[in-house]
């Protein structure tokens, strides 16, 4: 039994359509989201711990956690998603430390990015690549 390339593509397309994850955002939308958060300041690398699986079993539910000691806010971004912002955490006076975990949707393989606003007004950044694959058993 063989499958033509066209048939294989149809099969693949059916799988991705079921994911309901459409066009990636333009780089501009990502830049805008970063700028809105940092006010144009350039974040420096380091000082932020960002954890997410190297390979996501399903792009619709990907665990992610962030920590940045001394940060007042942390923004998580998925640059290749249709809307790049994922969540913005603001830590209040009773926070036990600037850390949080959640679960996110990723449209495709990308560098998930976290930017932290530090107490002194500077910004710190971390990135981690999460591979998102289209499964064989769509739905």
């Amino acid at each position: 039994m063989t499958l033509t390339r066209r048939e294989a593509l149809i099969l693949g397309a059916a799988g991705s359509a079921a994911l309901m994850l459409p066009l990636p955002a333009s780089a501009a939308a990502f830049d805008d989201a970063v700028k809105a958060f940092t006010g144009g300041a350039t974040p420096k690398e380091g000082g932020v711990t960002l954890n997410a699986p190297e390979i996501a079993e399903n792009g619709n539910t990907v665990p992610v956690s962030v920590e940045a000691k001394g940060a007042s806010e942390i923004l998580i971004l998925a640059p290749e998603n249709p809307t790049p912002k994922v969540a913005t955490f603001s830590f209040g006076p009773l926070s036990g430390g600037a850390s949080a975990s959640t679960r996110m949707r990723l449209a495709k393989t990308q560098d998930v990015t976290a930017i932290a606003k530090m107490a002194d007004g500077s910004f710190a950044m971390a990135k981690t690549t999460v591979k998102v694959t289209i499964g064989g058993c769509g739905g």
Partner: peptide
């Protein structure tokens, strides 16, 4: 303690953990 702005990239049945 914490305030969070959530965007559509948060998965169904939102789970949030913090300290």
């Amino acid at each position: 303690v914490i305030a969070i702005e959530l965007d559509p990239a948060i998965s169904a049945n939102p789970y949030i953990e913090f300290t």
